[in-house]
Design a protein around this nucleic acid. Structure first.
Lengths: 253, 253
DNA sequence: CGGTTGCTTGAATATATTCAAAGTTAGTGG
DNA sequence: CCACTAACTTTGAATATATTCAAGCAACCG
């Protein structure tokens, strides 16, 4: 099922003034003028099911979104079907920026769970740059943040062992999820299959399975309900020799 | 030798009005006001030797540069010394943006050849965002372009075979070099060692050597003078199943 | 000329893939 | 509620790919 087949809900179920994400300590406070502009910049909301393709490689009609709720992932395909997952998408993340700025999308985005997204008007991006230089700066910051995450991922896929790589990835995702309150009282549960993990790590499913098993034996993670429950982020970080996210507060559009 | 040990040359050997890169068809034309601002934004030039570290992971005093001439690369290290090269840096490319925006550098940049760089004033970046929204947009565009290149690289390291990966990488670098006129009348010559290649591809030097040998047997590349001469970009592209750069014109700050 | 750096090669070992099959789980429809 | 299906996980064995180790060679530099 693609995003196109789902009717866009124009109703403001979540007005910007009552954004559930903005109050989180992970995000920088916005002043009234900024909030008002963001609110006017927002065109509507999009709700999609698990498995929906939000954006697809080769398409030109890219929209700009911010994730309000749910999980997704960004990926590219080779012609014969091999898939590389580039990064995961969590609440507070912006998607479609590359396509909005540069024209044709060169990656796709798919929902891992039901998702709710704020949709922004591509054409008004120029207004934002003209009238709100602070927000323009924020958007560049967001692009630089994505670049930073990709740098880490590339380091991991290129140079870490399979076990380190898996540990790093799960710690990375769980840390990000934790920052946006996706762990209730308990541990973070990531709604992915081992195939997703394999396609992120650059490994086969079989080898990924054997690698995860080692993490399970060490009681670092648990596999259940078609997802991965992260039991010990610090243990994973130690195993991967990864020192954790270092972001401070970030902007939220 | 680090950049710090080389005296910064404040003289304007290359005034913006006589920029050798800007007239290239790869770059979008700037109007007078934009050119004037960029010229005032430029603080000086930096010339470094091959092997110099321009920016280093963990440092905070990041500068913002645009490469005028020469080759470099961006990389990250693991604690035990394993290195991943993230991308190469060519004339027209901006470096240090991540550090300028986000504070601490999380990667390093090293010169592969003597380099000449334009140095920009970090503090004036806000002025740029306030007074030149078009240029602000360009900077975001540049960040999105880097992200796109990283997406491709990650796809390659994660999912292409060693041979495809090497072919892709060399075609990619040679295409970029070609766009900025780094091939005289002949072929592009990339000033890298097989160790650099290995650290980019996520392979050992030994295996990299055996892989490159296959490319040489097919007369796609040649190794000489401590560098790689690309003989047949299209052959490499076909081998890697890569359709080439798709950028159009880009901004040059 | 001696030392260093980078390239090359073969052999032994380790890591990861492919193939094949079986077990599990969740969902669907009768 | 159960049978059936599809998607996902798990396992072992055979094979392929890549690393490590070790050694030698070539080019360059002081």
């Amino acid at each position: 099922m693609t995003a196109q087949s789902i009717p866009t809900d124009m109703a403001r179920q979540v007005p910007c003034e009552k954004c559930p994400l903005r109050p989180l300590p992970a995000f920088r406070p916005f002043d009234k003028a900024e909030l008002a502009f963001v609110s006017s910049f927002k065109r509507g909301e999009l709700a999609v099911d698990k498995g929906a393709t939000l954006l697809s490689e080769g398409s030109n009609s890219a929209h700009l979104f911010t994730v309000l709720a749910g999980w997704g992932f960004r990926y590219k395909l080779l012609e014969d079907g091999r898939r590389q997952i580039l990064n995961y998408v969590l609440p507070g993340d912006m998607i479609g920026l590359q396509g909005t700025l540069m024209g044709e999308m060169q990656h796709s985005v798919e929902a891992l769970s039901p998702m709710l997204l704020c949709m922004f008007e591509r054409d008004r991006l120029m207004d934002l740059y003209r009238d709100y230089p602070g927000l323009a700066y924020d958007i560049t910051w967001i692009a630089a943040r994505e670049e930073r995450m990709l740098d880490e991922n590339l380091l991991s896929v290129g140079r870490r062992s399979a076990l380190e790589r898996a540990a790093y990835l799960l710690a990375f995702i769980a840390s990000r999820a934790h920052k946006v309150g996706m762990d209730g009282k308990g541990d973070v549960e990531i709604p992915i299959t081992q195939q997703h993990l394999a396609d992120t790590l650059g490994l086969s499913v079989v080898h990924t399975n054997k690698t995860i098993r080692k993490l399970m034996d060490r009681k670092l993670v648990q596999w259940r309900d078609g997802g991965c429950k992260v039991l010990d982020i610090e243990g994973l970080m130690a195993l991967a020799n990864w020192s954790g996210l270092d972001e401070g507060v970030r902007p939220l559009l």
